[in-house]
Structure formats: structure tokens, C-alpha cells
């Protein structure tokens, strides 16, 4: 083996450790007592305790925020999928000026700075007396979910061979049946990973949730960030536990659609 290869491999190992170690470390910290955690020399060996997790899971604000996050994200993603996936199919199948503009418009929503959406939205929801409510947050999040679902589903449908749709049409399937019984099942995996990605985006969303909620509709990231402000000293053990819980859903989704996501990435390259 050449020395260059060896150096490059070392670099890769280093990068992999840099990604992995902070995560493992946080996971360990979530099970430490403050006496084990707040020490000058980091401790690798310690007696794990469940206290931090217990504290986080036992708080009413956390369980309520968890419910809020689940309900808000699920509805926003569901509505995003119902509206976005069929739209992506049309954009993928009809190539003309209008659909190209529609595709670009969906992407350009990502250019909007979140603050520029959050401030007027806050005034609007205050005016409608819907401020700090789940529906307000769901509707606001649809900006994210609809556009990202369209954006990521278009390549999924472009990959479906036209020939099988033609064949279905020869067998006298109508256009709607072709979509629901042929195109959608064939593109299923990639469409699902697009939807999973839109879920992760809104699950992680912070700025909009913080500006649009004050108490009832707070989502989990907001609660997690507030835990650093409990009293004078930062409760790092509890914070680590909250970080672990908050990070779990995206990681579970990654594991679930890991293969799907992999193919989505290779699609990008073949364009």
C-alpha cells in the first residue's frame, strides 16, 4: 500500500471519529450524575444512572412538547405529502415552461429567510387569535413540507420508466389509475425517503416554533433549549439526556429509510 493511501485512510478514520465520538460522548453523559459529569478530566468509567432521563421524561412540559411535536410534524408532513407528491408527478411527467417555473417556485421557498416568514406569521396568527396553537404551526410548516416534498419527489418519478406507464395505458388504465397503481408503487421507496426527510426538517425546526409559540404549542426543540436556563447553573446531565431524546427520531428514520436514502443520493449523481 502506498503511503498516500495510508495518509488518506488515516484522514478518513479521523473524520469518522470526529463525527461519531461527540455523539457517543453525549450518550454517555446522559447517564452520568453531575458529580461524574462536571469534572475537569473527562470520565470514561462511571456508574450509569437513569436519573437524567427520568427527570426529562417525567416533566409535564416535556411530554406536552413531545405530543405537540408529534402532532404538528405528522400533520404538516401528511398535508405536505398529499399536496406535494401528486404535484411532483405532474412536474416530472410534463416538461414545459409552466411546470419548470412551478418546480423553481417550490425550490425558491427555501430561499426565504425564516425570520422573514416568522415575523409576519406571528402578526397574522395574533390577529386571527390563533397564535400559540397547533394549527397555526402546522400551516406555517406546510411552507417547508410541501416544497421539500415536491423538490425531492420529482427525481423519484423521473426514474419510473415511461414504458411501464405506457403499457398500463394500453391496458386501458386511466391517468389516475396509472398514478396510483403504477407510478406511485414503483417510486414508493424514494418518495417515502423524501417524506421522511421533510419530517426531519420540521422536527428539527427551531426559529419558527420559537417565534410562533409561547406556552401551549411549544415543540420539543424549544423545550430542550430552555432547559439550559433552569436556575443559575446549567443542568448539563439533564441537557444531555434531552439532546439524546430529541436526536432519536431523525436517527430512527435514517435507519428505516437508510437504503432508500442511499438510492436517492445515487440518483443525484446520475443526473
Amino acid at each position: 500500500m502506498k503511503p498516500v493511501t495510508l495518509i488518506l485512510r488515516g484522514l478518513l478514520v479521523l473524520a469518522a471519529l470526529l463525527v461519531l465520538l461527540p455523539l457517543v460522548w453525549t450518550l454517555l453523559n446522559a447517564f452520568k450524575t453531575n458529580a461524574d459529569l462536571l469534572v475537569s478530566t473527562p470520565k470514561l468509567i462511571f456508574a450509569p444512572v437513569w436519573d437524567n432521563m427520568d427527570y426529562v421524561l417525567g416533566r409535564r412540559s416535556v411530554s406536552r412538547a413531545l405530543m405537540n411535536s408529534l402532532v404538528v410534524c405528522s400533520y404538516a408532513v401528511l398535508l405536505g405529502a398529499v399536496l406535494g407528491v401528486p404535484a411532483a408527478y405532474v412536474i416530472a411527467r410534463i416538461k414545459n415552461r409552466a411546470t419548470q417555473e412551478a418546480q423553481f417556485f417550490a425550490l425558491s421557498l427555501r430561499f426565504l429567510p425564516p425570520v422573514a416568514v416568522a415575523i409576519p406569521m406571528m402578526v397574522i396568527w395574533l390577529g386571527l387569535d390563533m397564535y400559540d396553537s397547533r394549527p397555526a404551526l402546522i400551516i406555517t410548516y406546510m411552507t417547508i413540507t410541501v416544497s421539500i416534498t415536491i423538490w425531492l419527489s420529482v427525481p423519484a418519478f423521473e426514474r419510473v420508466p415511461i414504458a411501464i406507464e405506457e403499457a398500463a395505458r394500453v391496458d386501458r388504465l386511466g391517468p389516475y389509475a396509472v398514478f396510483f397503481r403504477i407510478a406511485l408503487p414503483v417510486a414508493k421507496l424514494q418518495v417515502l425517503s423524501a417524506i421522511a426527510f421533510s419530517f426531519i426538517l420540521v422536527w428539527n425546526e427551531f426559529l419558527l416554533a420559537m417565534m410562533l409559540t409561547t406556552s401551549r404549542a411549544k415543540t420539543l426543540p424549544i423545550i430542550a433549549s430552555e432547559m439550559s436556563q433552569l436556575g443559575m447553573s446549567v443542568p448539563w446531565g439533564i441537557l444531555n439526556a434531552a439532546v439524546v431524546l430529541l436526536s432519536l427520531p431523525p436517527l430512527i428514520l435514517l435507519a428505516l429509510v437508510g437504503t432508500g436514502l442511499n438510492t436517492a443520493f445515487s440518483k443525484k449523481s446520475s443526473e
Binding site: T26, I200, P221, A224, L246, L251, L254, L261, N262
Partner: peptide, 24 residues
């Protein structure tokens, strides 16, 4: 293996990434 590993950080909530490193 690296592909799967390298996708993880971007999927974490930014709040989490910020806290992980703030403590570090």
C-alpha cells in the same frame, strides 16, 4: 459505512449539535 455515518450529523437537530459542542 462512511456514507451512512457521514449523513448522521446533518440530520441531527441543530439545537442538539449546538449543545453537544457547547458542552465540549
Amino acid at each position: 459505512v462512511l456514507t451512512l455515518l457521514f449523513i448522521i450529523p446533518v440530520l441531527l437537530p441543530r439545537v442538539c449539535a449546538a449543545f453537544v459542542w457547547k458542552f465540549s
